[in-house]
Amino acid sequence: MAAKPGASLLQGTLDLLVLKALALQELHGLGVARRIEQITRGTFRVGPGSLFPALHRLEDAGWLASSWGESENNRRAKFYRLTRAGRRQFERETEAWTRVSLAMATALQAP
Protein backbone atom coordinates (compact mmCIF):
# COMPACT_ATOMS: atom_id res chain seq x y z
CA MET A 1 0.00 0.00 0.00
CA ALA A 2 1.56 3.14 -1.13
CA ALA A 3 0.17 6.26 0.47
CA LYS A 4 1.19 9.81 1.09
CA PRO A 5 2.64 10.47 4.52
CA GLY A 6 -0.04 10.54 7.19
CA ALA A 7 -2.48 8.75 4.99
CA SER A 8 -2.02 5.15 6.13
CA LEU A 9 -5.23 3.29 5.65
CA LEU A 10 -7.33 2.49 8.64
CA GLN A 11 -8.41 -1.10 9.00
CA GLY A 12 -11.49 -1.58 6.90
CA THR A 13 -11.03 1.66 4.99
CA LEU A 14 -9.71 -0.15 1.95
CA ASP A 15 -12.72 -2.44 1.88
CA LEU A 16 -15.05 0.56 1.96
CA LEU A 17 -13.08 2.28 -0.80
CA VAL A 18 -13.30 -0.83 -2.95
CA LEU A 19 -17.04 -1.01 -2.41
CA LYS A 20 -17.31 2.70 -3.22
CA ALA A 21 -15.23 2.28 -6.36
CA LEU A 22 -17.55 -0.48 -7.57
CA ALA A 23 -20.76 1.28 -6.53
CA LEU A 24 -21.22 2.93 -9.91
CA GLN A 25 -19.94 0.39 -12.36
CA GLU A 26 -18.14 -2.95 -12.63
CA LEU A 27 -14.37 -2.78 -12.92
CA HIS A 28 -11.33 -5.03 -13.23
CA GLY A 29 -8.51 -5.03 -10.65
CA LEU A 30 -6.46 -2.23 -12.14
CA GLY A 31 -9.65 -0.30 -12.77
CA VAL A 32 -10.53 -0.48 -9.08
CA ALA A 33 -7.06 0.73 -8.11
CA ARG A 34 -7.18 3.66 -10.53
CA ARG A 35 -10.72 4.56 -9.51
CA ILE A 36 -9.71 4.70 -5.84
CA GLU A 37 -6.74 6.89 -6.74
CA GLN A 38 -9.07 9.14 -8.66
CA ILE A 39 -11.84 9.51 -6.10
CA THR A 40 -9.36 10.12 -3.26
CA ARG A 41 -7.60 12.60 -5.49
CA GLY A 42 -4.41 10.64 -5.38
CA THR A 43 -4.24 10.33 -1.58
CA PHE A 44 -4.43 6.55 -1.74
CA ARG A 45 -2.54 4.51 -4.26
CA VAL A 46 -3.47 0.86 -3.92
CA GLY A 47 -0.89 -1.72 -5.01
CA PRO A 48 -1.71 -5.28 -6.01
CA GLY A 49 -0.45 -6.66 -2.66
CA SER A 50 -3.38 -5.06 -0.85
CA LEU A 51 -5.84 -4.81 -3.70
CA PHE A 52 -6.20 -8.47 -4.62
CA PRO A 53 -6.47 -9.82 -1.07
CA ALA A 54 -9.20 -7.21 -0.46
CA LEU A 55 -11.07 -8.14 -3.65
CA HIS A 56 -10.95 -11.84 -2.86
CA ARG A 57 -11.88 -11.32 0.76
CA LEU A 58 -14.93 -9.28 -0.25
CA GLU A 59 -15.87 -11.83 -2.86
CA ASP A 60 -15.62 -14.64 -0.31
CA ALA A 61 -17.84 -12.63 1.99
CA GLY A 62 -20.44 -12.51 -0.77
CA TRP A 63 -20.32 -8.75 -1.29
CA LEU A 64 -18.68 -8.88 -4.70
CA ALA A 65 -19.33 -11.06 -7.68
CA SER A 66 -16.90 -11.51 -10.52
CA SER A 67 -16.94 -12.50 -14.13
CA TRP A 68 -14.39 -12.72 -16.91
CA GLY A 69 -14.60 -10.15 -19.62
CA GLU A 70 -12.68 -8.10 -22.15
CA SER A 71 -10.64 -5.13 -20.96
CA GLU A 72 -10.54 -1.81 -22.85
CA ASN A 73 -7.53 -3.04 -24.87
CA ASN A 74 -9.04 -6.46 -25.59
CA ARG A 75 -7.35 -8.41 -22.86
CA ARG A 76 -8.98 -11.06 -20.69
CA ALA A 77 -9.63 -9.57 -17.27
CA LYS A 78 -11.71 -10.39 -14.25
CA PHE A 79 -14.42 -7.82 -13.61
CA TYR A 80 -15.91 -7.23 -10.18
CA ARG A 81 -19.33 -5.83 -9.31
CA LEU A 82 -21.34 -5.27 -6.15
CA THR A 83 -23.86 -7.92 -5.18
CA ARG A 84 -27.05 -6.91 -3.44
CA ALA A 85 -25.54 -7.88 -0.10
CA GLY A 86 -22.50 -5.86 -1.07
CA ARG A 87 -24.62 -2.80 -1.75
CA ARG A 88 -26.28 -3.10 1.63
CA GLN A 89 -22.91 -3.53 3.26
CA PHE A 90 -21.66 -0.44 1.39
CA GLU A 91 -24.55 1.64 2.71
CA ARG A 92 -24.04 0.42 6.27
CA GLU A 93 -20.31 1.05 6.14
CA THR A 94 -20.76 4.49 4.61
CA GLU A 95 -23.15 5.52 7.33
CA ALA A 96 -20.84 4.19 10.04
CA TRP A 97 -17.86 5.87 8.48
CA THR A 98 -19.62 9.21 8.16
CA ARG A 99 -20.55 9.08 11.81
CA VAL A 100 -17.03 8.25 12.88
CA SER A 101 -15.35 10.83 10.71
CA LEU A 102 -17.78 13.52 11.84
CA ALA A 103 -17.12 12.62 15.45
CA MET A 104 -13.38 12.64 14.83
CA ALA A 105 -13.52 16.00 13.07
CA THR A 106 -15.60 17.50 15.88
CA ALA A 107 -13.30 16.08 18.49
CA LEU A 108 -10.18 17.41 16.80
CA GLN A 109 -11.62 20.86 16.27
CA ALA A 110 -12.68 21.19 19.88
CA PRO A 111 -10.68 23.88 21.65
Binding site: H28, G29, P48, F52, D60, S71, R75, K78
Partner: peptide
Protein backbone atom coordinates in the same frame (compact mmCIF):
# COMPACT_ATOMS: atom_id res chain seq x y z
CA UNK B 1 -16.79 -19.85 -0.74
CA UNK B 2 -15.23 -22.15 1.82
CA UNK B 3 -16.51 -25.17 -0.06
CA UNK B 4 -15.32 -23.81 -3.37
CA UNK B 5 -11.93 -22.88 -1.94
CA UNK B 6 -11.41 -26.32 -0.55
CA UNK B 7 -12.71 -28.32 -3.47
CA UNK B 8 -11.39 -26.29 -6.34
CA UNK B 9 -8.19 -24.98 -4.98
CA UNK B 10 -6.10 -25.62 -8.08
CA UNK B 11 -8.57 -24.07 -10.43
CA UNK B 12 -8.80 -21.05 -8.17
CA UNK B 13 -5.04 -20.75 -8.12
CA UNK B 14 -4.93 -20.91 -11.91
CA UNK B 15 -7.66 -18.28 -12.13
CA UNK B 16 -5.73 -16.05 -9.75
CA UNK B 17 -2.56 -16.43 -11.80
CA UNK B 18 -4.49 -15.49 -14.90
CA UNK B 19 -6.08 -12.51 -13.21
CA UNK B 20 -2.71 -11.27 -12.00
CA UNK B 21 -1.16 -11.82 -15.42
CA UNK B 22 -3.98 -9.73 -16.90
CA UNK B 23 -3.36 -7.06 -14.29
CA UNK B 24 0.32 -7.00 -15.20
CA UNK B 25 -0.46 -6.66 -18.92
CA UNK B 26 -2.84 -3.81 -18.21
Amino acid sequence: SLWRNITRRERLDRALDEELAGYLEL
